[in-house]
Design a protein around this nucleic acid. Structure first.
Lengths: 327, 327
DNA sequence: TTGAAAGCGGTACCAT
DNA sequence: ATGGTACCGCTTTCAA
């Protein structure tokens, strides 16, 4: 029942050929004013609308990118998505967004259908490359926040080395010595961020850091800080896996009657805008989230156009300490 | 350069006809195992990928919806978008997201191109219906947060009447009498929310309310509260146009040394998750934001299928007071 | 099991 | 200014 009315119907009603209809609708010259009007009227009357498929088939323009993210409600992904949308819009590209709801099954469903809807795919995946390639065969794929293993894929890397060092420098300069970290709970290996942190601590000759694990949520962060502080009451500063956890830590500190940054300094990671709504505003190792999305789109574009892709060095986004009020 | 390899190329290389290629690729029966393998190999080798246009042209399935929002970074719209994506995914529909960056020009650009990419459009628009219809001709359009004037469009209404009354009831029950409101700045007419508020105040026989105007941002809310309090220091409670403004008010109150809710009660509007990260957690007249998006998708679906559309009464989402800690 | 032919709904090019 | 025709890439009859 959907797209019934075709260009032929319009042609018939208007008493002209389809080519003429096409001309009228596309504002080509070479058409009589009254004819054009007649066609337009007929089209409107019939509720005619060109098929995007037929049109796409003949004019090979119009690019559509699939953006796959685990959870749009997570402000980090929201920002990345925003960056991607912005970059795509600048090129007049269209972006189909898929929210996989943090579910591996939804991710599977997504890669199965996305390939027939878009020209390239960018985003966050947890499936292994073999499975991805199997379903996404033949189409450019840019992985975000995860390193590719085979040349089949591209990836945008997050380089927090410098930023995390700055964070620790900042804390040390303020006199902190006992600094803990709230890492990502429930992952096989310690995070890269934890590695950078340990590295920075070592640089200052500080003790092997105290590390707790936080579930990735505000509540998770609050709980983890409680726990960590009960075991290590001497901590005067905390660095967290990300801003969401840091915000939880902020809340926990307040509940414990600790002034931030006076009694406890807190530094997050991501530099989300969200960090400005809490009080004190969150100091954070900031990523240019917009750029992450934009880079992914950019790389997808190069791959699509057959241009030389950006080399790994340029596919990195590095972090910088963003000093606000919590440290 | 883009989509060079066609089904014909695969057919030639595999030494079969295109129909056979189609069979192999689409897992139809009636094909010899070895033939199928040969085709698959050829396809992989050539990096063949079916044209989504050609395929869409012949099988008229696959629905794509355009979602137009003014700013994905605004948590309210993020939540609505999330609801829409979720509802679309449940039907195996695809959603192209357009962020118009709060710009009327971007909105224009969007409606000009979206029509050739999607089957229906839902979202937020500020253009008038005539202009919308002109570009979106013939395709279902569901307006959110704004009432349609002509039957050409559908719209999802926000009904805050009950929720706002609950909010005022709640405040009055807690002993508040002097309650101000921070409305939306920079709009021609007072908002509906302000009307509901005035109405609720009148119900309780309270004075005509004090109303200030806030720019729609955290800073805007903070500033507006300052200003309002300097002129009306006797206020003990504030209701705001939305949560973002309320969060600004929260901050301003804290800076002024006012305890919330002790010295000043604050109630927002929207019921965003964002309200849980601030301290005290924000009490708010909550909307089911997810439902807003879902309703829009639902209505678009009915329009598309030629089913009877939902009547206006069912296209409403009403608000309820969500009591957290700020009032 | 496989292939030939006929569209799907448009646009471009060449006549008229 | 308008119409005829080929063709975009793929799937769906229908024969063979």
């Amino acid at each position: 029942m959907g797209k019934r009315v075709t260009i032929n119907d319009v042609a018939r009603i208007a008493g002209v050929s389809r080519q003429t209809v096409s001309r009228a609708l596309n504002d080509k010259g070479e058409i009589d004013g009254s004819t054009k009007q007649r066609v337009l009227d007929a089209a409107r009357e019939l509720g005619y609308r060109p098929s995007r498929f037929a049109r796409g088939l003949v004019r090979q323009d119009s690019t559509t990118i699939g953006l796959v993210i685990p959870d749009l409600l997570n402000p980090f992904f929201t920002e990345v998505a925003h960056g991607a949308l912005e970059a795509a819009r600048a090129r007049d590209w269209h972006v189909i967004v898929y929210d996989t709801a943090d579910s591996i099954d939804e991710e599977r469903r997504t890669i199965e259908v996305v390939v027939s809807q878009v020209d390239a795919v960018v985003g966050y995946f947890s499936l292994d490359e073999a499975e991805l390639d199997q379903h996404l065969s033949g189409i450019p794929v840019v992985l975000i926040g995860r390193e590719h293993r085979t040349p089949r894929f591209s990836s945008i890397r997050i380089d927090g080395q410098k930023g995390v060092h700055e964070a620790v420098d900042h804390l040390v300069a303020a006199g902190h010595r006992r600094i803990g970290m709230l890492d990502h709970a429930g992952r096989a290996e310690p995070s890269l961020r934890r590695g950078w942190f340990a590295d920075a601590m070592a640089t200052h000759g500080l003790d092997a850091p105290v590390v707790g694990n936080a579930v990735q949520s505000v509540d998770g962060g609050a709980e983890a800080l409680h726990e960590m502080l009960s075991r290590h009451p001497d901590l005067t500063a905390v660095f967290t896996y990300n801003d969401v956890v840091a915000i939880g830590a902020l809340r926990a500190a307040r509940r414990l009657g600790l002034a931030v940054p006076g009694d406890l300094a807190v530094i997050g990671f991501d530099g989300l805008q969200l960090g400005t709504v809490v009080d004190p505003a969150l100091t954070s190792v900031a990523l240019d989230t917009t750029r992450i999305g934009a880079l992914a789109i950019d790389q997808a574009g190069r791959l699509l156009a057959g241009e030389p892709p950006l080399p790994p060095e340029e596919l990195q986004v590095s972090a910088t300490l963003l000093v606000r009020d919590s440290a």
